[in-house]
Design a protein around this nucleic acid. Sequence first.
DNA 1: GTCTATACGACGATAGAC
DNA 2: GTCTATCGTCGTATAGAC
Lengths: 199, 199
Amino acid sequence: MAIKGDLTKARLAESMLQLIQTSGYSGTGLNAVIEHASAPKGSMYFHFPEGKEGLGVAAVELAAKQFEALIAEAAVSAGSAAGAARATIEALADIVSESNFRLGCPVSVVTLEMGAESERLRRACAAAFESWIAPTSALLEANGVDASEARSLATVVVSMIEGAVIVSRAMQSTQPLVSAADVVADLIDQRCKPVGGMR
Amino acid sequence: MAIKGDLTKARLAESMLQLIQTSGYSGTGLNAVIEHASAPKGSMYFHFPEGKEGLGVAAVELAAKQFEALIAEAAVSAGSAAGAARATIEALADIVSESNFRLGCPVSVVTLEMGAESERLRRACAAAFESWIAPTSALLEANGVDASEARSLATVVVSMIEGAVIVSRAMQSTQPLVSAADVVADLIDQRCKPVGGMR
DNA sequence: GTCTATACGACGATAGAC
DNA sequence: GTCTATCGTCGTATAGAC
């Protein structure tokens, strides 16, 4: 019967993730999480004996995996590094606007709220950003960008996406994300040497 | 005796601003604010009868003014639009690293935490971003960038700075901010036509 | 305008039956 | 593993003296 327990655990992490996106970490109460996940409080403390912090780490790790998958998908289906970046940002813009600008990046908000108070959560956020920067950097390298420049450019791309999501939310407009997509695509095209037929 | 009262009010907003930067909006309790400001709770509700939300709006407006001043200062002292952007980001990198990566942007975190729950706070954040985008755009226009391109580029620059602050905090490194400064300077130089001797 | 005392709810966490 | 009842604390907000 480990299966049922694991499902409950996954549902709790998923609920925490969703609630963090709209209300932040401190603003998300465990009562709201267990209600959203339809799980009793006892189960929560069974699966996450370290309490809210453990649940927060699980939510950040889940968010990391989900966005990593979005990046990997775009990298495969797009014809170029610039196209992959554009596709990723456009997918994000759709998510944000379809939520009526109520969803933001859970990793950003946890970094800002808890980075100074919980070393565990800060590390989880750093790992999440790293898990997006690394594949982006690898994709750039595969397109002929030098290793150190690829790393730096990948960091910039991830930073820009995070920032554009926030400004888009505040303004309730996808314009900041659309502009970011244009600039990122330009930036990548400029630095990619034509390699292996990709451009 | 309006003077003394105004000072108390300003001190409360300043305390709220500082605490939001390290602990977020929901994570900042009013008890902590009044203690930090050395003001009694009664004074807080006298100066901010709308409670925490009003205090939050005041903190966001204060942050907007402060960073606006930093931008204006850089615009005057730097020799070019690109130089002004670089100076601004470097000043920001100093602030973040000198705080041991404990400070973040109060506007970003309020947007992410409260954007979906309080229309007043969301508007205050949108106005804050606008107050940074507008002068940046104006500076770009003064350097020969078309109006609509200037607006879009200014939005990208502000987004990138916001994102780079977050990633820098998570990673406890100024590298994301330094890379952002380089890219922003490049971006602006590329789009500025030499006008009025500025380059 | 300033300050203290307090109301009342929500929070995270735990105990213990099942 | 699941669930309920409950603890103590802290949150925001208010009342009323000064």
